[in-house]
Structures are given as C-alpha cells and as structure tokens.
Design a protein around this nucleic acid. Structure first.
Lengths: 250, 250
DNA sequence: ACCTGAACACCGTTCAAGT
DNA sequence: ACCTGAACACCGTTCAAGT
C-alpha cells in the first residue's frame, strides 16, 4: 500500500505494525510476559500508549501478532534444514520429524514466554499452521493415513511446537517481578523440604526423589534436565506412531 | 484452633478459608476464571473485598487453595476406585493407571478452568502430590525402576492429571465474557474458511481436514472428539512405557 | 480478631481533540 | 492519517480506622 509518494526523506522510523510487534517481542524477551503492557510497550517506543491502537486492534491482536513473529522465526529456522531426499525411505519420517520439532523447540527456548501466549491464542497464526502443515507432510511421506495423522497431531499436542508443560516450574523462566524478589530463592529447597516433611503421605515420591537424585549431595528438585525429558517423551510418541503406521501398511 | 468457647449461637456462618475457597470454585464453575476476582468473590459472599485478606494471603494464595480443592476432589473420586488385588500381575499397572487418569480427567471436565490454574501454580498442592504418588506407586507395581518412573511422569506431563492442551480451542470452555459476545459464533466456520482460502499454503492440512471430516456435509473444525483424542495419546504413552518396563525386566 | 471504607498504583480501552 | 491527553471502568492491594 505504500505508494511511491514524493516524500523528501522518509518520516524517520514511522511507527508500523511490524515495528510494534518486534518491539513487543524484544520487551517480553528482556523483561518477561508480565512486563508487556500497552503502556510499557509505548514507553519503549517513545510514544503514547494510545498510539499503539493505530497499529493493533487491541492487546489480543498484539499477542496474536507477537506469536506470529515467533512462529515465523520457527518456520525460518526449520526451512533451513535440508529436506528429505526424494528417494528417502518411508522410515525416515521419524528422524526428520524429530529434528524439525527439536529445531522449533530451540526457537521457543529463546522466547520462554512464547509457549504461554501460544496456549492462550484462540485464533491461529498463519505461520503456525504452515509449520503444522509441514509436520503433516512428513507423516504422509511416512505412509500415514490422514486419520492417523490427525490422531498424531492431537497426541503430540504442544510437543509438536517443541514444548510441554512442566509439572513444577523450574523457577527462573519468569524474570522481571522486581517487587518482592524474596520468595524465589530457596523455593526448590523449600519444596524438597516440604516433600520430606510429608514423607509418610507421599512415600513413593520421596523414594523416587532419593533414587533419581543420584549420589549427588543435594537432593533438590533441580535434577530434571528439561531437554532430556522432552526428548524422552517425544521419542515415546514418535515410536508409538511409527508402530501404528507400520500396522496400517500391512 | 476453634476452642470450645461459650458462644451463645455460633456466629451464623462465620467466614472461613474453606468457605471462601468453596465459593471461589463455585464462582469459577459458573462464570469462568475471568470472573473470579477478589471483588466479585467478596460480592458473592456478601462481604467487602478486603475481608477476604483475613482468610487468604493474596490472590495467588486463593488460587493455590482453589486448585487444592479440585485436587482433593480428584483424590476422593480416585480413592473410591477398587484397588489392585494383591496378586494382580505386573501388567495390570497399565489398565489401572489408565482408569485412574481418566477418572481424574472426569473431575477436571467438571471444572474446565482448573487446568489453566493448575498450569500456572508454582507451589504445589498436597493433594496433587498425593495423586502423583499413587501413579508412581502403580508404576512401581508394574516393575518400573525409579528412573523410568521419573521419565514417565515427565512424558505424561499434564496428561497425568487428565488434560492436554488443545491446538485450537474448541470454543465454549470460556464462558462469561459478557462484553462482546459476537466474536465467538461462527469462529469455527471462519477458521475453516480461512484454511480453505490459503489451501495452497497448507495443502496437507486442508486435505487432512477433508479426509477426516468424513462424508458429513459440514467440514468444520468440530470433528475432534476430545475424549477420543485424549485416550489415543494416553494409550500411546502407556504402551511405550510398558515396552520400556518390559525391557528393563529382561 | 475480624471486617470496613477510602485510597493507591496499576491495567486495557473510549473519546474528543489536536496536527 | 496518525498521534495525544484526559478520563472511565476495572484490577489487586495498603492502610488507618472501626467494632
């Protein structure tokens, strides 16, 4: 729409929707999702809060746009992966899919707030759908029926995008709450202590905790390696789907 | 702490933490999570908003208490299931776990807002942990090492409690937003139409949509049976875990 | 000990007014 | 067309005051 008008010098850094959204991503990256308000975003851009409404309809629209940017980043990185060879065997759907999902995950790890926003969207981003489409394509290459593909997408759920909700927050993803600040440190220790205190009520849990936090001196809740656990869960689902696809073929 | 004081008639319906929390659950059930504010809850109880702070520390504490109530309900229902017989074979861990998780799910379906609140807790409910403990116990009965149990809990993630985040909201879980009201109806149709419009960009997606929404006349996005999909995904994970446990035994 | 009312520091957003 | 300032209707929460 920007017709070649006779502008002298371009109005230095005119506010655009793209600039607003990029700034919002940067702000969330830096200060966390809680810090992303219309007012703070405006301050970041050196304008008044109300000016934002000329580029986004409202905050929901802002968040829609912000996930779209992250999804575009995912698509970009995934697009750089070398595609499956034309003569690749059907079985290669699995490593290809694993690689693609872990690549998407690597992007989301750079935007820790994004998964929360993704979960709460009710409209969907074009880039997200295109990413899904590529996953579907991979499974088709693997010989999946569309019915199985459909089930598979549901079974993967958020894992398709590279995240899974943790049972207990590892603490630290949420930065920025400058207010209290004292409630966080030692939260893990407190949690462990709490579990120990009610050892009789959750005996298996306590035993598991002791068994898994191997010989290390500190039996904290920090023994979970997120990446390892994610890949474990993903592996189980991909293996299960592979078996079902094989059954379909015969 | 309520010592047997010489009270004439008990101060009719004194406000207690329990009554506050129960009222909060009822309010969220009726009007949705967005409607649960300190002010609206107070109005519901016929008191002033500030009076709530004598029974809960703040809103976070209120939400902690509210999930605890739901978790207690889960534990209650699960506790009524008949336990595994002493001589049950190791393999029976799987149907037992499936039954327990689906039972938990049935409770969460009665409190559609609860999963959102559960996800955002950073402290954990005693009742949730006790529920997890029983799952761990079942897997131990199945011969799992604690290491495998630990991986399993991560692999299940929120599925252990009976929910999984949907890729696209089925619309309708979020009641109460009395404001606009016009954005919802036809959202599915709009979504489908949007997908159709960009059919060239997401060809597999569109084909899947056409293939899965069988001969039925309306190719809407409403073809997903949440319960079926949940059980499918759960089945894949349980099967995968079973196989790994078997491998451990040999 | 429990409850209250006014007030504070935030939100997202509407609206009439500026250029 | 784009940006602004004041204002509105909400939040959660603090505080001093009531009984």
């Amino acid at each position: 729409m920007t017709s070649p008008r006779t502008t002298g010098t371009a109005p230095r850094s005119a506010l655009t929707r793209a600039r607003v959204l990029e700034s919002a991503v940067a702000l969330a990256d830096r200060d966390g999702l809680g810090a992303l308000t219309m007012r703070s975003l405006a301050r970041e851009l050196g304008i008044e809060a109300m000016s934002l409404y000329h580029h986004v309809a409202n905050k929901e629209d802002l968040l829609d746009g912000v996930v779209d940017i992250v999804a575009a980043e995912i698509q970009d990185v995934v697009g750089r992966l070398e595609p499956l060879a034309d003569d690749a065997p059907q079985s290669s759907w699995k490593p290809a899919m694993r690689r693609q999902i872990l690549t998407a995950r690597s992007v989301l790890l750079r935007h820790p707030w994004a998964s929360t926003v993704l979960e709460t969207r009710k409209s969907f981003s074009l880039h997200v759908v295109r990413y899904y489409d590529s996953l579907i394509g991979l499974m088709r290459r693997g010989g999946f029926s569309y019915d199985l593909v459909h089930h598979a997408m549901h079974a993967l759920g958020s894992r398709a995008l590279g995240f899974s909700q943790e049972l207990f927050e590892p603490d630290g993803a949420t930065a920025g709450s400058a207010a209290g600040g004292g409630a966080k440190e030692g939260a893990d220790d407190a949690a462990t202590a709490m579990l120990m205190q009610m050892a009789d009520q959750v005996p298996h849990m306590v035993e598991m905790l002791a068994a898994v936090s191997h010989a290390d001196a500190d039996p904290t809740l920090g023994w979970c390696d997120d990446q390892t656990e994610f890949e474990f869960g993903l592996g189980i689902i991909l293996d299960g789907l592979d078996r079902l696809a094989e059954r379909e073929r015969n």
